[in-house]
Amino acid sequence: MNFQELILALQNFWSKHGCLISQPYDIETGAGTMNPHTFLRVLDEKPWNVAYVEPSRRPTDGRYGENPFRVYKHYQFQVIMKPSPDNIQDLYIESLKAFGIKPEEHDIRFEEDNWESPTLGAWGVGWQVLLDGMEITQFTYFQQAGGIDLKPVSVEITYGIERICMFINGIDNMYKLEWAHGVSYGEIRKRDEYEFSKYSFELADIDLHFKLFDLYEAECRRVLDEKLPIAAFDNALKCSHAFNVLDARNAISVTERARFINRVRTLACACAESYLEVSNG
């Protein structure tokens, strides 16, 4: 099963189990959790079931297309179900069958791995799922997002699709995966990896990104004052990405790092609070 088929299989499976198939967000995110379809939608009490692919940009993970396991941008397959269904672990195991894993032939284990996102003021309790010793999924019951205690609790399932695809095809190099129709992952992604790595580590204009951070931060606050938290949150995401670029450029010292993370968290928490206020009010 190639990369494209794997995504289609996951989409079909979760669609069949009641999830909306949504699309990636159109602003840079570091993980599927930052997509408003997760971050904002898990805050309120309304049931919400969604699944989508999220291209996740992590500038510090860039390796110029040279490391077969680590990349500037990878793809996550994200599932959110609220409230978390009682049979969610069974559903998850079922989903593995969708891409050809026969669970009885493998060792599938749920090992404690609690998730935390300091920039989003979010944390949850859960596991990494190991398939024959390899981590293929992060499985989390959200406890807090944007500093708000969640009720009902959403469950988040994040599949690392490159890893899974490598696993089921027995391939040890991400770039050698088949995307579809004989076209490789490398053909689609390798040049991007080189360019974005070079850009993030060597070229990105540091002053500009510090300015961008300040500007987006101010814009986020201004829009929040107008009680438009969804629009405001886009600006918080922009801040987060600017920070990631600066981090990759080594432009932020250890102590400043904590301060910047705190600034993004403050915005994310304010957006979350405002989102709830607007939904309830």
Binding site: P83, S84, P85, G124, V125, Y141, Q143, L150, P152, V153
Partner: peptide, 9 residues
């Protein structure tokens, strides 16, 4: 460490 799940308290 404890947790909550579903719609329960």
């Amino acid at each position: 460490k404890n947790m909550k799940w579903g719609n329960l308290d």
